Amino acid sequence: MRISDLKTKEVINICDCRRLGYVGDVDFDMDTGCLLAIIVPGPGCFCGFLVREKEYVIPFCDIRQVGPDIILVNVDLDKATEKCGI
């Protein structure tokens, strides 16, 4: 599977059946070539001129299944790593 294939899949959280969005980027270990996490841009913010304020970094261990159209993850969003960007 290629990174471009991952970017076409929607990420669904099985904890609350919430749609998180589409994969925006991935995090790899350069030494081993292993996938460490997928990064999903958060919702847009109107007051920030439609700039995305957060992104969810979902560790590989939280990915439950990769299907033809979706990726199922098991993430507690309150404890998930969020990166804020300006």
Results as ranks from 00 to 15, higher is better:
residue 29 D to L: 12
residue 49 F to E: 12
residue 1 M to A: 09
residue 69 D to C: 12
residue 34 C to Q: 15
residue 15 C to N: 14
residue 43 P to T: 07
residue 58 I to M: 09
residue 14 I to Y: 00
residue 76 D to F: 02
residue 29 D to G: 09
residue 57 V to H: 11
residue 34 C to N: 14
residue 54 K to W: 03
residue 68 P to K: 14
residue 10 E to G: 11
residue 25 D to F: 01
residue 11 V to T: 00
residue 54 K to M: 08
residue 78 D to H: 08
residue 39 I to F: 04
residue 55 E to V: 08
residue 28 F to C: 12
residue 66 V to G: 01
residue 82 E to H: 15
residue 67 G to L: 09
residue 66 V to F: 03
residue 86 I to D: 13
residue 63 I to E: 02
residue 4 S to V: 07
residue 37 A to W: 00
residue 41 P to H: 02
residue 52 R to M: 02
residue 25 D to I: 04
residue 18 R to W: 04
residue 71 I to N: 09
residue 15 C to I: 03
residue 45 C to Y: 07
residue 23 V to K: 05
residue 75 V to E: 05
residue 9 K to G: 12
residue 24 G to W: 09
residue 50 L to K: 08
residue 14 I to H: 01
residue 10 E to T: 11
residue 31 D to I: 08
residue 17 C to T: 14
residue 17 C to G: 09
residue 5 D to H: 11
residue 59 P to E: 04
residue 42 G to P: 01
residue 9 K to M: 09
residue 19 R to Y: 07
residue 11 V to A: 01
residue 35 L to W: 12
residue 41 P to S: 07
residue 36 L to E: 13
residue 63 I to S: 03
residue 3 I to K: 12
residue 74 N to S: 05
residue 61 C to P: 01
residue 83 K to R: 15
residue 34 C to Y: 10
residue 32 T to R: 10
residue 47 C to E: 12
residue 2 R to W: 05
residue 30 M to G: 11
residue 33 G to S: 10
